[in-house]
Simulated assay, not measured.
Amino acid sequence: MRNIMITIEYKGTNYCGWQIQNDRTSIQECIESAIYKITNEKANVTSSGRTDAGVHALGQVANFYTNSRIPVDKLPGAINSKLPDDISILDAKEVDYDFHARYSAKKKRYRYVILNSKYKRPIYNDFAYLVKYKLDIDKMIQESKYLIGEHDFKGFMSTGSSVKTTVRTIYDISLKKEEDLIILEVEGNGFLYNMVRIIAGTLVDIGRGRINLSLKDIIESKNRDNAGHTADSKGLFLKKVYY
């Protein structure tokens, strides 16, 4: 029995998210189906974390166990031949038997893309959150720095998630403007449900002048009502998982 770690890129637009659901197509279902077609084994593919409907991945990581003797360097091509065009296995490695894509992860990096344009841009329809209002990017950058460090991010979590603690550590955050695109990247040891999307929405509301509180005060309040809206899922990318 081998433990295989795979790195996956996918466009989440047409899926209900990572996790298998009875009535809608998921990323996990597609990958498990593809593995079955090439190995004749029902593999349980475990990811580093669930992504929601519409969320994309540049470097999702998952693992599964198999008795198949297909050489590991041949697995990506074999699995990809059974996958739809919007999901791709980029790499496969044989890892220690006790490696777990979720529990072995040390940190993750997410990217969030905002299209700050007066008009819609069809090329970005599935990959960026359209914000038509003028944004104060300098203020957004200045406020974003308060997120760095260990904090209780209770105010940046959507309801519907049960966690032991809402304390998380943000190691790095960057916000830059490239023509009409504002690109936010956040790296941390873990993220609460919708945390990155709420951070993005809060920064947008600060940039619009809809929120007058400092981000520092919002964090310290631990109150979801003080933070901004939850930004659209289509602007979110899981960029990299670190082990």
Score class of each variant (00 low, 15 high):
32 E>I: 15
21 Q>W: 12
110 Y>N: 07
2 R>K: 06
38 I>L: 01
9 E>F: 14
105 A>E: 10
108 K>G: 00
62 A>E: 12
56 H>S: 02
36 Y>S: 06
3 N>S: 03
72 V>D: 07
21 Q>Y: 09
100 H>C: 00
109 R>F: 07
4 I>K: 09
63 N>K: 06
118 K>N: 15
23 D>W: 08
47 S>T: 11
52 D>C: 12
118 K>W: 10
79 I>K: 12
5 M>A: 14
32 E>D: 15
82 K>T: 09
41 E>R: 07
99 F>L: 01
60 Q>Y: 01
76 P>T: 01
18 W>Q: 04
107 K>Q: 12
27 I>Q: 13
105 A>V: 02
6 I>S: 06
37 K>A: 07
112 Y>S: 05
29 E>S: 09
16 C>V: 15
123 I>W: 11
46 T>N: 08
17 G>V: 04
122 P>W: 04
54 G>E: 03
127 F>L: 01
5 M>L: 15
40 N>L: 11
66 T>P: 12
67 N>H: 05
71 P>W: 04
42 K>C: 04
99 F>W: 05
111 R>F: 09
35 I>F: 12
64 F>T: 03
48 S>M: 03
91 D>V: 00
50 R>W: 02
89 I>H: 13
33 S>C: 14
40 N>S: 11
73 D>E: 14
59 G>N: 08
80 N>I: 00
117 S>V: 05
32 E>K: 13
55 V>K: 04
30 C>S: 14
86 D>E: 09
22 N>V: 11
45 V>I: 05
9 E>C: 02
37 K>D: 08
11 K>T: 01
65 Y>P: 12
44 N>D: 13
26 S>E: 09
28 Q>F: 08
3 N>I: 01
28 Q>L: 05
82 K>R: 13
11 K>C: 01
30 C>L: 14
65 Y>C: 07
28 Q>A: 05
105 A>S: 15
119 Y>N: 15
70 I>N: 10
126 D>M: 06
73 D>G: 10
93 K>D: 10
85 D>V: 05
77 G>E: 00
72 V>R: 07
119 Y>Q: 15
113 V>M: 15
88 S>Q: 13
116 N>K: 03
35 I>Y: 09
52 D>Q: 09
88 S>A: 14
113 V>K: 14
19 Q>T: 04
53 A>C: 08
62 A>H: 10
56 H>V: 03
99 F>V: 00
3 N>M: 00
11 K>Y: 05
92 A>Y: 06
97 Y>C: 08
30 C>P: 15
30 C>Y: 07
65 Y>F: 14
22 N>G: 15
60 Q>G: 02
51 T>I: 05
52 D>L: 11
11 K>F: 01
66 T>E: 10
39 T>C: 10
61 V>E: 00
94 E>I: 01
76 P>R: 00
55 V>R: 09
13 T>G: 07
27 I>M: 06
12 G>A: 07
40 N>W: 07
96 D>T: 03
48 S>K: 04
36 Y>I: 05
61 V>D: 00
93 K>Y: 06
45 V>T: 02
57 A>W: 14
19 Q>I: 03
88 S>W: 07
68 S>M: 02
8 I>W: 11
114 I>E: 04
115 L>Q: 12
33 S>L: 12
17 G>E: 05
75 L>E: 07
